[in-house]
Amino acid sequence: MANPQMVMYEEEFNLIQGIVDRLVREANAQVVFIIDKNGQLIAASGETDQLDTTSLASLTAGNIAATGGIAKLLRENEFTTQFHEGERANIHIQLVGNRVILVVIFDNKTSLGLVRLRVKKASEELNGIFEQLLAKVQDPDHETPFAEITDDDIDNLFND
């Protein structure tokens, strides 16, 4: 299976959300979010009210994809970490297990060193959870919500 489907269940989501919530506190960050490499938002924590997280997720994934393309040209496997420094906001982007992207947005209330330290620990934990999730999805017995969907359901979606 070249490209397994991403599925999120309550059990794993709660674990992931716990890590993201903790990372906001421990790194003293403004916002932390996790997206998959295709740009789908998986979890977010912190001051997300003012942020367009959908757009951020898509652009970050594009950024990671472009950087991955550059790495390939240089015969590198991946550049796993990116850091962008602004006047007020900074963004730290970490590729986790070559599958999901951990993004931390922070200001001058914290330091890059602390963010990196906390991100490293969180990445290891997240990696384990996503591996567990992948194993679950690849289990042939796993159910999908599509099993019960009928052609009529799909047609009804497009009735104006």
Binding site: M8, E10, T144
Partner: peptide, 15 residues
């Protein structure tokens, strides 16, 4: 690769 989220009950697809 679609993304199915059972928690928020969402199906996400890329076109």
């Amino acid at each position: 690769m679609s993304f199915i989220n059972y928690l928020s009950r969402e199906i996400n697809c890329k076109i």
